[in-house]
Design a protein around this nucleic acid. Structure first.
Lengths: 158, 158
DNA sequence: TACGGATAGTTTATAGCTAAACTGTCGCTC
DNA sequence: GAGCGACAGTTTAGCTATAAACTATCCGTA
């Protein structure tokens, strides 16, 4: 459906630029909602699954909350609660670093590893289903366009 | 920068589909953060500015919270707090519908109209600056691609 | 060795978001 | 006219996010 109708706008969009921007934001919001419907089947949120995937890649050494906050691109204060909830659910383990007690080491607990394994396949299947509505060229243009916008954002403000 | 580096991924991305999806999500997240840095100069959030723009289009008659929640594509319970805060700041007025007390009428207050006016120009200038990193073709492909993905999401689940 | 700066994590206050349960109002039907 | 269902708004509980102020730990230097 056309974006203007979809958003029930009273006035037509002023410019192609604004239309492109709103397209992107709206689509990503809907993807977010779909993703949370998907993960809620496993009593997870998208962020929680993301953390499990990251921790999986880091294996037994795990990560500090600081590193985790960098990977997730969120503030470190946010990570406190995220890890709290995952720890309470038994999916991750939080231990103090033996030689530097400033650090916490967050590692994937067996229960979390099992869950991650179970969700992962299903997740990638969904990703493929959704993104295959695009042609190969469209995907490449999209990836390149997104890179240019990020480039602009990261240099424009710092 | 390449997405894999930007996200500091330990392992390369498994598929073009996943890369395209993460590109989109990551870019939209950064746009969100940039947008909130921008609006915070006016003591606003992106959502609040969006509401002011919507209310402006509806003029003196205003909207019910129900209609507002449809326009914003958020749950109605969310609108309660959004309007609360805008009302407290003096930007909107909330009155009971004269003939049907189930409805609230939300209208833009003069203070809100003045602020909206002031922010709007600056906002569209920023939008142009950012989106003009893309060529015309890229914008058209992007808009079309986003429409296809939304189409998929809206039909796939309902 | 004591001090002061840097670093990691926590707390607090605020904002936005959801789902589910609840209240109040309206209108139709019996 | 009483009652019931539909609809608008509110409340509650929980998740994610920010910024700012705080605590604890470590390490280099004087």
């Amino acid at each position: 459906m056309k974006l203007e109708k979809e958003l029930k706008l009273k006035q037509p969009l002023a410019s192609v630029n604004h239309e492109a921007l709103l397209s992107l934001v709206r689509t990503s919001t809907l993807m977010q909602k779909l993703s949370n419907r998907f993960f809620s089947k496993f009593d997870l949120t998208d962020v929680q699954f993301n953390i499990l995937m990251i921790l999986k890649a880091y294996g037994a050494e795990g990560l500090s909350q600081q590193k985790l906050s960098e990977q997730l691109v969120v503030g470190k204060s946010n990570v406190v609660g995220l890890v709290d909830r995952l720890e309470k659910a038994g999916y991750v383990k939080r231990t103090s670093h033996p030689s530097d007690r400033r650090f916490n080491q967050i590692v994937l607990a067996p229960k979390g590893a099992k869950l991650e394994q179970r969700v992962e396949q299903s997740y990638f299947k969904e990703v493929d289903r959704m993104m295959n509505v695009l042609a190969g060229t469209e995907k490449r243009v999209l990836i390149h366009a997104m890179e240019k916008i990020r480039q602009y954002i990261l240099t424009s403000k710092i």
